[in-house]
Design a binder for these strands. Structure first.
Lengths: 139, 139
DNA sequence: AATAATGTATCAATGTATTAATACAATTAT
DNA sequence: ATAATTGTATTAATACATTGATACATTATT
């Protein structure tokens, strides 16, 4: 069960629902969770992670708002298979903003353009490999 | 004076000191503010932006903690010229984390690798141009 | 039809973040 | 020396975020 993938640090200072959101997003982006896959029921996951069910609800519903998940009362919560909520342009703008943040941070940390390009290539390739491996296996 | 570069939105929901931090960081990364340049005194900038002086203080001192600025009592606050506080490896790890965030977001927004690469190239070039132009001009 | 499983909604308690008011300390300018 | 300029420190008011307790609504199972 996918439950095992999640674990929360109660003393990190980072809100529990944010930790969970991040882990779900990473799992979906990396193909660990695929469109149509079901997530654990809120109570079950709450027990497993020893948090209040509302904390799970918050993570799930914010991800639903963002178009990543889809919850149906009485049935469960699933990874959304449908199209993204935003148009291509809007999505690109969102990613551009994140890229700019990387650039600002990198330059202020005095990384050279070369170092930065290398880091980018490395991480991009790491994810491409991860995605390629994820395809097909249902785990 | 560099004061004119900053402007705060009091109704955006984003904390004022964070808005200011972001603008200072962007100005330094883009070469608008150069090492050794002086920032406006806290009271002056507070008046200009119509916020409490403590709000400016908070932005300045957090950026000092991060190694970007340097404040000296009675003298003023300046863009730090010295070496970064962290070692190269630590700085790279920090940037890697941001890059991974970009990748997670991009994949979840269903951008293709091609679209993503193109966006990266575009933004990187935009900043390189900005930096090249910034060199020499004191503005 | 009844029960169990699941997501939803409402409200309260608590902690944390943000901004402000005010006084203090060091440096620079006169 | 004195005053002005500048950053620093302390404390408080307020709003917001986070988590929890509890009851409700819908769907699936028996």
């Amino acid at each position: 069960m996918v439950t095992g993938w999640f674990h929360l640090n109660h003393r990190s200072g980072i809100p529990l629902y944010l930790q969970l959101k991040e882990q779900i997003k990473t799992a979906v982006a990396g193909g660990v969770l695929k469109p149509g896959d079901r997530l654990p029921p809120v109570r079950e996951l709450a027990l497993k992670l020893t948090v209040n069910p509302n904390t799970i609800v918050r993570a799930y519903s914010e991800l639903e708002r963002d178009g990543l998940l889809s919850s149906e009362q009485g049935r469960g919560t699933f990874v959304r298979a449908a199209e993204p909520l935003l148009g291509v342009e809007e999505r690109k703008i969102q990613v551009q903003g994140l890229i700019d943040k990387v650039l600002v941070e990198a330059f202020n940390l005095r990384l050279t353009t070369e170092e930065l390009k290398k880091l980018w290539e490395e991480r991009l390739q790491a994810w491409e490999v991860r995605l390629r491996e994820g395809k097909g296996a249902d785990r």
